[in-house]
Design a protein around this nucleic acid. Structure first.
Lengths: 344, 344
DNA sequence: ATGAAAGCGCTAACAA
DNA sequence: TTGTTAGCGCTTTCAT
C-alpha cells in the first residue's frame, strides 16, 4: 500500500482526499461543478501521492489518444527538424504527445491508418511527400475520418487540409530576381515530384519566364533528386551543353551547393561565370562560399500552424467540415551567389 | 453492427470466428496452445473484419505501452535526424512506437519521468545532452526504474546504460593527423559541455598533444557553442592572437565551417594559411570548399544499437542488472581542409 | 484446447 | 455538489 514502487492511481488520490474517484476526475479535468474546499483537498492529495494520470486508461475510456502522428521525409532532412520542433512544442503545450511514424510494408495508407485505428494517434501531420499516393486521400475520406494536415512542397490534394508555403510564387520571385539581374538564359534543377502535377517550384520557374516573355529551353531543365550529389550531376549536365545558361534556379539549397561545387571542380566559378539561386535557406547557406541567394521559408511557423490547426480540428471536429488551406509567405534572401550578368 | 464506421474489436473477431475473445487473443499473441483449425478460423476472421488491436486497451491491461520516448537536441540538428531515423526503423520493426519528448517546465527529470509514470512510454532514448543534470540519474535509479539509454558526446553517468562513439579517441586521432602533417601550434574550438567533466573531444585534443609531447597553450582553446556563428567568432578570436595556430581542431563541422568562413572573410585561406579539422561529417562537409577533413561517426549504427539495446532491456529486464556501455568506432576522413604545414 | 469472468484505471450517465 | 455504477477492449487466471 505504501510501496513506493507502486504508481498511484486515481483511487489512491480519492482515498487520500476522502472523496470519490469521480470527483478527482472532475477536478483534474475541470469538468462539472466541484466545491472550492474539495477541489483544494484533491489538489493536496495529488501533491501528496505524486499522482499522474494514466494515459492508457484515459485513452481507452475516451477513445482519444491525445497523440499526434507525424510522417517525415526519410533521410536526415535538416529542413524538417525545425518544422517538427515547432510542431512538438505546440503539441506538448496543448497536452498532446508526438509520435513519429516508421515505415512498415509498402502501403502507406494502411500503416498510417493503423496508428489511428489502433487508438495510438488521433490525427496525422503529413510532411513526407513521398507518401503522396493516389490512395492517400482515402485516409481522409475513409469512413473513420482520420484528420490529416498535409504540409509539403507539392500541390496537396484539395480534399486534405493543408498548411504550405507559397512555393510557386516564391520560386517565381527567385527567377524574376535573376531576370532583373539581366539573365535571359536561365536553367532550372528540379527535384523529384511524387504527385501527378508538376512540382510547384518548376511551375514557378515557368511562370516567371512566361511573365518576362522569355522562352523556356527544355534542355535547361535538369531533373534531379534534392541531393548535393544530384546538384553535381546537374553541373556536369549543364557544362555538356554548348550554350550553358548564365543562371540557374535550383529547387533546393543542397542541389544549389552541389551545382556550385560541381562547377568549381571544372573551373566555372559562381557567381563570376554563373549565378545560382537555391531554395530553403538551410543553415549552411549563409556560410557557404559564395553565400547562397535563396528562398527562406517560415519553417517554425509551418510546424506551429500545422500543429495548431490539427489540434483545433481534433478538439472541435464539427467546426471544420470543409478542408482548410493555409498558405504561408516565403522570403527571397539575396546573397553572393547571384550577380548581375556580365559583372564577373 | 455492420456500420463501417465502427472500429472492430476483438469481440467482433471472436463472434465472426465463432470462438471466444480469449482464443482470439491467444492466436494474436502466439501464447497458449490453439488448434490449427481454430487458428486459421481466427486469422480469416481478422482478415474479414479488418481488425487492428486496440493499443490503449492492451497498454492498460499489460502495463506496457510498447512505446519508446526520445529526447533530442533542440535546434534542427541534422546530425541526429539520421540517428533517430535508424532508431525509429528498429522500433517500428519490433512493434514499438516512437514518441518525441517536448519540453514542459524546467525540470527535465520530472517531465521525462511523467511519460513513463503515465504509461505513455516504457523507456527513454536520451540523445539530448543539454538534459544531463545531476538529477538525471535519479530517473534510472528511481524506484520505478524507467530504463534509459544515454547516447551523447559527453561522458555519460556510469549508472546509465550508454551507447556512444569513441569521441575521445577519435578526437585524438584527428589531432594526431594534424601533428603528422607537421603542425605544432594547434588550436581547439570546444563545444558547450553540460556535464561536470570536460568535453570528451577536448580531452582527446589534450591526449594527442600530450602524446606528442607538445605543450598546450590555453589561449589556443576557444570555448564556443557548436554553431557556425560560433565558429566565425572563433576565427576572430584566433586572428586577434599575435601567434595564430597553424591548425585548428573544431569540435564539430558547423564550427569548422564557421571558422573557415570567418578566416576567409579576413583573407586567411584554408588550408593555405591554416588547416582545419571538424567532427561529425555532416552532409555539406564533403561539398564545402574546401572539403572538410573530419571525423565520421557511425550515426546509423548509433541509433540502431541504442534502440535495440533499449528494447532488449524492456523485453528482458532481468538479464540486464548491470548498466551496459557500448562504444562504437568513428573514422577519420581526410579531405582538403587539412594540409601539410608550409605546403600553402 | 477453449470459454467464462475478472479487472487494468479511467470518465460519464445517472442518482442522490 | 458528490457518489455509485457501468464499461471502454484487452489479457489472463481459473475452470472445464
Amino acid at each position: 500500500m505504501d510501496d513506493p514502487r507502486k504508481i498511484p492511481t486515481i483511487q489512491d488520490v480519492a482515498r487520500q482526499a476522502k472523496v470519490s474517484a469521480a470527483t478527482v476526475s472532475r477536478v483534474l479535468s475541470n469538468s462539472g461543478r466541484v466545491s472550492e474546499i474539495t477541489r483544494s483537498r484533491v489538489h493536496a492529495a495529488v501533491q501528496a501521492t505524486g499522482y499522474t494520470i494514466n494515459q492508457a486508461a484515459r485513452t481507452l475510456r475516451m477513445q482519444r489518444a491525445k497523440t499526434i502522428l507525424t510522417a517525415v521525409p526519410g533521410i536526415g532532412n535538416p529542413f524538417y527538424s525545425t518544422v517538427i520542433q515547432a510542431a512538438i512544442s505546440v503539441a506538448t503545450s496543448r497536452g498532446y504527445g508526438m509520435l513519429v511514424a516508421g515505415r512498415l510494408g509498402d502501403d502507406p495508407t494502411r500503416w498510417l491508418m493503423e496508428y489511428y485505428v489502433s487508438n495510438r494517434a488521433d490525427g496525422l501531420l503529413l510532411f513526407d511527400d513521398t507518401l503522396v499516393t493516389h490512395t492517400l486521400h482515402e485516409i481522409a475520406t475513409d469512413d473513420r475520418h482520420m484528420p490529416i494536415i498535409a504540409s509539403y512542397d507539392q500541390r496537396p490534394d484539395p480534399r486534405l487540409n493543408s498548411v504550405i508555403t507559397d512555393n510557386r510564387e516564391a520560386s517565381a520571385r527567385a527567377v524574376q530576381h535573376l531576370i532583373e539581374y539581366g539573365h535571359r538564359r536561365i536553367g532550372h534543377v528540379a527535384g523529384t515530384s511524387n504527385s501527378p502535377f508538376p512540382h510547384e517550384r518548376l511551375s514557378g520557374y515557368r511562370d516567371a519566364m512566361a511573365a518576362a516573355q522569355l522562352p523556356v529551353d527544355e534542355r535547361f531543365i535538369y531533373q534531379s533528386d534534392y541531393t548535393m550529389e544530384g546538384g553535381r550531376s546537374g553541373a556536369e549536365y549543364f557544362m555538356s551543353l554548348k550554350d550553358m545558361p548564365t543562371a540557374i534556379f535550383a529547387a533546393n539549397d543542397e542541389m544549389a551547393i552541389g551545382l556550385i561545387a560541381g562547377f568549381r571542380a571544372r573551373g566555372i566559378e559562381c557567381p563570376r561565370d554563373v549565378s545560382i539561386v537555391g531554395f530553403d535557406d538551410i543553415s549552411v547557406s549563409e556560410n557557404y562560399h559564395p553565400s547562397l541567394t535563396t528562398v527562406r521559408q517560415p519553417r517554425e511557423a509551418l510546424g506551429r500552424v500545422a500543429a495548431e490547426l490539427l489540434i483545433n480540428i481534433l478538439e472541435d471536429q464539427a467546426e471544420f467540415s470543409e478542408p482548410v488551406h493555409e498558405v504561408l509567405p516565403s522570403e527571397l534572401v539575396v546573397r553572393e551567389s547571384s550577380a548581375r550578368i556580365g559583372s564577373g
